[in-house]
Amino acid sequence: MPEGHSVHRIARQFARHFVGEPVRVSSPQGRFADGAALIDGRTMTDSKAVGKQMFLEFDAALWLRVHLGIYGAWDFSGSITQDATQRSARGRMGQTNMTGTDPDAAPDARTTVVGGHEASLSSIGAPRRTRLRMAEAEKESVIDDAALAAFPPEPVGQVRVRLLTERAVADLRGPTACEVLDAQGVQRVIDALGPDPLVDDADAGEERMLARIRGRRVPIGLLLMDQSVVSGIGNVYRAEMLFRARLDPHVTGAALPDDVIRDLWRDWRYLLGVGVETGQMLTMDGLDEEGQRAALRNRADRHWVYKREGLPCRICRTTIALEIAAGRKLYWCPSCQAGV
Rank of each mutant, 00 (worst) to 15 (best):
T111R: 05
T111W: 09
T111P: 08
T111Y: 10
T112R: 15
G116V: 13
H117K: 15
E118W: 11
A119S: 14
S120T: 10
L121V: 04
I124S: 11
I124C: 11
R128T: 08
R129Q: 05
T130V: 10
T130E: 04
L132W: 03
R133S: 05
A135G: 04
E136Q: 03
A137W: 03
E138I: 08
S141T: 10
A146Q: 11
A149Y: 07
F151I: 07
P152R: 00
V156K: 08
R160N: 08
T165Y: 07
T165C: 10
E166P: 04
A170L: 01
D171F: 01
P175K: 00
E179T: 10
V180Y: 08
D182I: 11
D182R: 00
Q184R: 13
Q184H: 13
V189G: 10
I190L: 06
I190G: 05
I190R: 03
G194E: 12
L198M: 00
V199A: 00
D201N: 02
D203G: 00
A204D: 01
G205F: 00
G205Q: 00
E206R: 07
E207N: 02
M209H: 12
A211L: 09
I213E: 13
I213T: 14
R216C: 11
R217T: 14
I220G: 15
I220D: 12
G221R: 14
L224C: 12
M225K: 15
S228G: 15
G232K: 04
Y237S: 06
A239L: 14
M241L: 09
M241V: 07
F243T: 09
